[in-house]
Simulated assay, not measured.
Amino acid sequence: MKKRGAYVLANDAVYEWTVAFLESFRIHNPDLPLYLIPFDDRCDEIVGEASEYQFETFEHESFNLLESIGEKLELGVTPTGPHWFRRFASFWGPLDEFIYLDCRMVVLADLEPLIQALDSYECDFLHFEGGLDQVYEPGPVRTALVREHHAQGFNSGRWVTKKGLFSRDQMQDVATELVRRRDQMNRRNTDQFFLNYLVHTSDVRYASVHDLMPEVSRLTWPRIPGTVYRDACGYKVWSHGRPEHDTHVVLMHWAGIERSPGMECRWLFRRYWLHGKSVVEKMMLWLRELVLMPVLVGERKLRQSQWVHRIYELLRDG
């Protein structure tokens, strides 16, 4: 019998994100096996939650090798980038079929149907779109992958796959090739373009989760058109007249977005983050959010304003 489950990558630097993730994961997936992949050596606080949220820590001998691949491809834009490559140790872990997830998200549904979809649709790798611009720079590599392999850019923070799909030798070979083609890859998202290229240039059967399961929302970012609401069937997108309308939201992913009272879909994060806190703690946090939210939302609107940027450029240029 196949062992199905999930992996999450985290450390104590994102402890509050991780607690919200763990809380949401266990509410919607009470029995699904979960393994923590340590982002680095700072994981004591999170590991202390293992009995509360029923997960195990997964250490693997490949961590050094994977980080060395990240170091070859890193341009210095994201100094912690090589640590993200530890997530690929999941290909050689204890689970036969699994979903990989970053900690800076909340889980809003039962994940087993996504994992079972590998067998149902005879696929090896399922992904959520993230956009080609976040993966490849314009150039011959991108053009060829789109033309010949129908490549869709996907985010490296959530994907579904099988144990042993790629070997360490394959990863090292792809890394060597990508060093030569580094100028055609995204400057920042090293692990993301690495995984995309690994999948796109292989013979594995891959597809978008949404393309196979159109009832699942294609997007898992909070900055999506419309709003997220909850009904008897779970979380859905309300975006009347758009393709996403009434599709199910299974994950909400805040990677790259600062955790603050002004962040989009904050209520979803707060729902799980506040679980287990005392009434006094909840009241203090709510008060802080009520005070700061208008300020932070206003600041974000100003930063996005075309006119503010024009005034700034005029002042800067004298």
Rank of each mutant, 00 (worst) to 15 (best):
G48Q: 05
M105T: 08
V107Y: 09
F21Y: 14
L108D: 07
P38S: 07
V14A: 03
T18G: 05
E74H: 11
C103N: 11
R42D: 09
L65E: 13
F91M: 07
S24Y: 13
S120L: 14
W84Q: 11
E49G: 02
F21H: 04
L108S: 02
T18F: 08
L66T: 05
H28L: 10
D110S: 14
E129H: 08
H28D: 12
P82W: 04
D133M: 11
S120D: 15
R26D: 12
E74N: 15
I69Y: 01
H83Y: 14
V107S: 02
F88L: 00
E16I: 07
G81L: 10
L22R: 06
E23Y: 10
H127D: 03
I99Y: 01
Y35C: 04
H28T: 12
E61Y: 12
V135E: 02
F63S: 05
C123W: 00
L75G: 15
R26E: 12
T78H: 15
V14T: 09
D44H: 14
S120K: 15
D119C: 08
L132D: 13
D124G: 00
D31Y: 13
H127G: 06
L101F: 02
L95C: 02
I27S: 07
S68F: 02
L32W: 06
E49Y: 05
E52T: 15
G93Q: 07
S62F: 10
G93R: 06
P82L: 05
A109H: 15
L75P: 12
E52F: 05
G76M: 09
L73E: 14
A20S: 14
E23T: 12
H83M: 13
Y53H: 11
E61K: 13
E112C: 12
F39Q: 02
A89K: 05
A13L: 12
F91R: 00
V107A: 07
D133L: 11
V19T: 03
D41K: 10
W17T: 00
F98M: 00
V107L: 03
R42L: 01
Y100F: 11
P33W: 01
D96S: 04
I27R: 09
E71L: 12
Q116F: 05
Y53F: 13
F55P: 03
S62G: 12
T18E: 03
E59V: 12
D119Q: 11
F98C: 00
G76L: 06
M105S: 03
L114M: 10
G93W: 07
A20C: 13
A89V: 10
E129N: 11
F25H: 00
T57G: 07
I37E: 01
F91C: 04
M105I: 04
G76W: 11
A13Y: 12
Y100E: 08
V135S: 01
D102C: 06
F58Y: 11
E71T: 15
P30N: 06
G93C: 02
S62N: 13
R26H: 10
W84S: 10
Y100G: 02
P94V: 07
V19K: 05
G130D: 03
D102S: 08
F88P: 00
L118W: 06
P30F: 09
T80Y: 14
P79D: 13
R104P: 02
C103S: 15
M105P: 04
V14L: 08
P30M: 01
Y35M: 06
L111M: 14
Y121D: 13
Q116E: 15
W84F: 14
F21C: 06
L34R: 00
F128R: 05
Q134F: 04
G130P: 03
E45H: 12
L95A: 03
R86P: 05
